[in-house]
Design a protein around this nucleic acid. Structure first.
Lengths: 131, 131
DNA sequence: GAAATAGTTCAATGAGCATTGAAATAATTC
DNA sequence: GAATTATTTCAATGCTCATTGAACTATTTC
């Protein structure tokens, strides 16, 4: 009988995705991009970060599939970054499900020494173990 | 005019919370706890981790307020861990909102050299900057 | 009180990673 | 083609943190 999620989640993959999101600079960059700002120069204006640092964090977000890049058709020095909406939706879905409080199951009453005690009086047998 | 979330999120705090969640071992522990297993011995059986490592990760989860501990009333050597439902709900709410794809705003058209080009012909003035 | 059991704390190791400044690449302008 | 602009890559530094084994605390059993 399975007590966890129906299909056991890939914790390694989930952790890797969450690690990408667990940086304040990257959260701020994401927030700016979500807000509709995609011009690199304006990103720099908002963020007060060294350009190479912005570049580094954006590359992390790109490798994670969260952000896409597109060069300007007229002046190819400019690059526009944008949120990969599908990727964000997938993350939102996955973690929304995993961390949903509704998933919490009640404490299993047949576990631990208390259970043994409750059924056989004040003293339990010495080999008492859960299950 | 604000283009991001109404009240600017505390990226540092969010990142710290996400960092706690960005470990495969901690995700697995959380999943076991969410599944209703709270007896330490059974946690150990499920996780195939050294007891001191379980203890370490659980202490991280406890410091983050995600997990609570309670000693067995009969045999105080046993400790039962449980999910702090309110804390999980708060996290689910915060991140569900932040990463919601519905928040994504369209690209601002008045940004970058393309905008200048579109209104003033093929050549833009050399000092062109966004906004 | 000695042995056994449940769990935590400590110290050491090593890997990963954010940050910084400088150099390099790419594209455009004059 | 030299200078300028936009962005990336590189190398070095230092901090954080997961992991391990050993020692320690607390509690119960005999």
């Amino acid at each position: 009988m399975e007590t966890r999620t129906p299909t056991k989640p890939d914790y390694e993959t989930m952790a890797r995705q969450l690690k990408v999101l667990s940086d304040p600079r990257r959260l701020e960059i994401l927030d700016v991009l979500i807000g509709g700002v995609q011009c690199n120069c304006e990103i720099g204006d908002h963020l007060d970060m060294a350009p190479n640092l912005i570049s580094h964090h954006i590359s992390v977000l790109r490798k994670a599939g969260l952000v896409r890049a597109e060069r300007d058709a007229v002046d190819a020095r400019w690059i526009y970054y944008s949120i990969n909406e599908e990727s964000l939706a997938a993350i939102s879905e996955t973690f929304g499900q995993f961390f949903s409080p509704g998933r919490i199951k009640p404490r299993r009453p047949d576990c631990g020494p208390k259970a043994v005690t409750l059924t056989s009086g004040h003293h339990r047998q010495s080999s008492a173990r859960c299950q």
